[in-house]
Design a protein around this nucleic acid. Structure first.
Lengths: 348, 348
DNA sequence: ATGAAAGCGCTAACAC
DNA sequence: GTGTTAGCGCTTTCAT
């Protein structure tokens, strides 16, 4: 932070340019000179000023992953994956929390997102319109996670909401459930849900498909809505449903594992046995699912694949030469696996 | 990323300097002119180039929090807290993962830490020497989390390892446990532990104190060591202890909640009842502890206080004028609370 | 094989 | 009140 390239150059009796070349191993500097320069730089404890470097080169070498909550297991696992994937691409990843808890702050923080010291951003920002993102990204490449627009202008990576949800509900049917409830869903007609790309609607679509294939219709009373896919909220909501005598389910699909954790606890506190009285399955496949009691069946989405895909798509876009038109936006959906654990393993 | 201050200046028929002042609300620009400039800048979708700004001003307005694992609940809660606290100080926080999983990479990544686009860093880097950190920080302010040196040269924030661990073991004694085990500790003599500031040793010290106060000595067989405070590792280790017939405990203090989650599962799979057969208490107070079954008793450290303290100490240090000598390094220890839940709530 | 010099986009004295 | 100007530390042609 103190010693500059100039200082090193002076000490080595060469020009700043030579130092720059030597330090980056440019072949045009004679190997021995280069080595000498490097030694001196080391001895002086020199390190390049990233800010200056990136002002000049137009590159920072960092990508940013912006999510609403740093402390949700799904996101933290994703962020860890993104960090690792970034390393393999020779860039550095930093994570940023978008939400402050206080509603309304999102946008002001978002404004800083693409403004910042990065070459591109991976954004999980359900709720923002393309126009907003476009404006905020300031021309920097953006990869969207669960983009809410149909084949929008941005590269995007999707979780397998529809298929995963369908598999979850199908699994409950397979386990013999007759009365399946959906925790964290929003009740709406099929055709209306089909017109939306919101994650909550896409998961609902999958559920509706499964119901339909079993010749059943989803009753409004079968969904336990939630403001937020939050463990505490889910616990409260299900507890309330039970105490008000509206709990008639023998199978429960929770829209996320975090929701399921709250649900499991609510059930247990009310003496409802899992899986004997009610089978429970979640969605996400976070690590903690293996450790709760009963262990949680889930739709384990390939979180690592989300990480790898989004990083590699973003890096490709960043490196996309100015030459020629930019590549078409890429939209990929990652895989999932139905993981059956204790919470839905009926011996029937 | 395209339109510069120059462009705005040209469009507004003023100088770049005026744009700069106007945009930052410097009083020396006439209000109406300033407003006009702002309008034009907006219309042109201008936004300042953070890199250039910070090269010039020597400030980035971002602080960085570097931890080994992004996907450990304790760290993610801490990072979320740091993000919020940073916002209140008018700076932006970004999180960075130091570890790649592959051992040996730590240092190379660390080299980038302080190099990067930030004004200071909050570092949780057990294992690095002061000299290394000093070198890597390149003169940027650093706040250490659980610094391993005695009253070292850096500002630091400590978790209440000794007192917390003592409280945990004392709680187990209070619950009537006669045979207390320590999962994730390292067995070593009191005086040797006392000479270390490693987190694992500090927690051991607390345990030893509690044992001593009960006139007991810690047997080597009472510790179940772990390579890493990891849920999977803990599960394996305890499972092994049980199957090998070496499990004789009626009380278990797990060095972290994450460890406890693995322990609870291992116990359950072997039919050992909690808390009836063995009482279990963890350390950290992560959110998930409320939701596992049985819910986890724990030493809940005030994670938010760690966040707030480290951010505020760091910001003060960043803003410390050049005038006069720098303030003495600050060392603070945050509070904790013994939270008794089902896993240790014996009805005795 | 190396050096000189021109900026990258912005800020902050200092002029006017 | 507003414009001029001189860099921040680095990269990168273009000379030599």
């Amino acid at each position: 932070m103190k010693v500059t390239m100039r200082d090193v150059a002076k000490a080595a009796g060469v020009s700043p340019a030579s130092v720059s070349f030597a330090l980056r191993g440019d072949p045009r500097i004679k190997p021995e000179t280069a080595q000498r320069i490097r030694d001196i730089a080391n001895r002086m404890n020199y390190s390049v000023n990233a800010t200056a470097k990136s002002l000049r080169s137009g590159r920072t070498g960092v990508i940013e992953a912006a999510v609403f909550q740093l402390d949700r297991p799904f996101y933290s696992q994703l962020l860890a994956g993104i960090s690792n994937a970034a390393l393999e691409h020779g860039v550095q990843a930093v994570a940023q929390q978008i939400s402050t808890g206080k509603i309304g702050h999102e946008k002001s923080i978002l404004e800083k997102v693409a403004n910042q010291f990065c070459d591109g951003v991976i954004l999980s920002a359900g709720g923002l319109s393309n126009a907003e993102i476009m404006e905020l990204s300031k021309g920097k490449p953006v990869v969207l996670l669960d983009d809410q627009s149909y084949q929008g202008p941005f590269d995007s990576v999707f979780t397998p909401c529809e298929d995963g949800a369908e598999a979850a509900v199908t699994h409950l049917f397979d386990m013999g459930c007759q009365n399946i409830g959906l925790v964290g869903a929003e009740f709406r007609p099929f055709d209306q849900a089909l017109r939306s790309m919101r994650v909550v609607d896409r998961r609902l679509i999958g559920c509706l498909r499964a119901f339909e294939r079993h010749g059943l219709k989803l009753a409004e009373s079968a969904v336990v809505p939630l403001d937020d896919w939050d463990t505490d909220d889910a616990y409260e909501a299900v507890s309330k449903t039970i105490s008000e005598g509206r709990f008639t389910f023998d199978g429960l699909f929770c829209m996320t594992d975090a929701v399921a954790f709250g649900v499991l606890r609510a059930l247990r506190e009310h003496g409802i046995r899992v899986p004997d009285d009610v089978a429970v399955i979640g969605f996400d496949g976070v690590h903690a699912g293996e450790y709760v009691t009963p262990s949680l069946s889930t739709i384990a989405v390939n979180i690592d694949e989300i990480a790898r895909q989004s990083v590699s798509i973003l890096c490709r876009r960043i490196n996309e030469g100015r030459h020629g038109a930019p590549a078409m936006p890429k939209h990929v959906t990652v895989g999932y696996e139905v993981v059956v654990r204790e919470s839905s393993a009926r011996i029937s």
